[in-house]
Design a protein around this nucleic acid. Structure first.
Lengths: 249, 249
DNA sequence: AGACATTACTGGTCTATACAATATACCAAG
DNA sequence: CTTGGTATATTGTATAGACCAGTAATGTCT
């Protein structure tokens, strides 16, 4: 894509975002480079400056560019991490890191929600939820134990899915029209217990990471509560932190 | 603040952001509430719709509101976590969690940068950097060991600072005019070694979290590289994940 | 009662324009 | 050689207006 289609159903600012991304991907612009000014871009692609600016602003918020008033807009220097802090399921995550994801299904069933889960999913205690327990592999080695609990309309249909060979998140977004938007995650250090050690094939007392995650749809509805145990020696979490202004009031 | 000052040096959209935040703080708007429409807000405060929209867009990006086309704009339901994924120094972090931060200075000196640090701070190997090692306490209990390495113009002046009783980040932002913007952080599980166990007052082999963090200024210059060891039983990390669109190309 | 069209709201996109604030290079006066 | 102004880039802020697209309630027809 090298031009803006004015009659496309895709918004123009969105088309421009893709073009700008592409010009980075191809290596035309390298980290630290100055990109054309907003006015220049708007003339090149036949847009108003504000529309070009919206595309750039989006990419600034995504961490692709940064602006300096009076100087111009530049390509950020660090990009790897940003892509890894995206909300991803295990399958997508491992693929992105260049590994071969694998899954061994431990259990999948409908059960009544206990108190903690019900509160996090904002449903009534005892409501039937879909619970799945999977051992996750990377390059055939056990990496994590993942226990997911989901609730949405007709979530019992998930029982018929092949969750051993499909990405749960991809299934939700495609077949079930459940668009995932964001998640809150807690990370804590721990030691492997006997059961966990056996599944992960590590000695009892090895370093592990416990995570607890609540996932929300684009309607801000909690849809999944998942707890995981990651093998400490094989996995690193990346996060990106931003400092917002402290308002002196 | 309840009105927009048209001649204020503070941008109007920024004033509006503060007003909107205030209306949440006072409890006027609760999580899940529908706020007035963009058109309504712009009339109320005497702004154009685009200006009001800019304020709202900012707050949406910060996770304060979410929008639903055709329905309106709402206050998000989960707020605690968002504040904790801000880039914070230890002092601010513990205060925000309601604890009493403390520090024991282990060492502070200028040393030549080793290869790994030089690369992360994007300087030459051997360049003199400021290195500080501190034991961090929460409510008088040891919580973490933090080793920070900083490089910027005249960073040797830090040697004269009382880093035991001051927040390093606050010092940087106020006295040294070094505005911090964002950071990348890696988190990994580990076990306490003998030296770490002693400092943290836990048994050898306890669960700990290793973190490595590179901090950047608003000019995208790396300024700090810090590694920490957190006592596993006393600290939980929070992260917020966003799913951005997967572009099918 | 149910299905469908209307309508009036919402946010989403886009334009054209104006002026402010900042950064940089250059030039002239001291 | 330094200082200060100026021209001209840049992004930042702000307006007014237009139309599109999705939602929900209402009314109307079957």
């Amino acid at each position: 894509m090298t031009a803006i289609y004015r009659n496309s159903p895709v918004p123009r600012y969105h088309q421009l975002k893709e073009i700008l991304r592409e010009r980075i991907r191809t290596g035309e612009w390298k980290p630290g480079d100055l990109i054309p000014s907003e006015r220049e871009l708007s003339e090149t692609y036949g847009l108003s400056r504000m529309t070009a600016r919206q595309a750039i602003t989006d990419l600034v918020n995504e961490g692709v560019f940064y602006r300096e008033q009076g100087r111009g807009t530049f390509v950020t220097r660090h990009k790897i991490t940003q892509q890894l802090m995206r909300l991803t399921g295990f399958t997508e995550d491992i693929s992105a890191r260049g590994g071969q994801p694998g899954t061994k299904l431990l259990s999948a069933q409908m059960i009544p929600a206990d108190e903690g889960t019900a509160e996090r999913l904002r449903i009534a205690v005892g409501e039937p939820i879909y619970r799945i327990e999977r051992l996750r592999l990377a390059d055939s080695e056990p990496l994590a134990i993942e226990r997911s609990q989901l609730y949405f309309k007709q979530c019992e249909r998930l029982l018929d899915e092949d969750v051993e060979h499909n990405s749960l998140y991809r299934l939700l977004e495609t077949k079930y029209a459940v668009p995932l938007m964001e998640a809150e995650q807690e990370i804590e250090a721990g030691l492997a217990g006997t059961e966990e050690a056996e599944l992960l094939a590590v000695p009892v007392g090895s370093a592990v990471l416990y995570t607890r995650r609540t996932t929300y749809t684009d309607r801000n509805q909690p849809i999944e509560y998942a707890t995981s145990v990651y093998c400490g020696s094989k996995y690193v979490f990346y996060t990106h932190l931003r400092r917002d202004q402290l308002f002196s009031s």
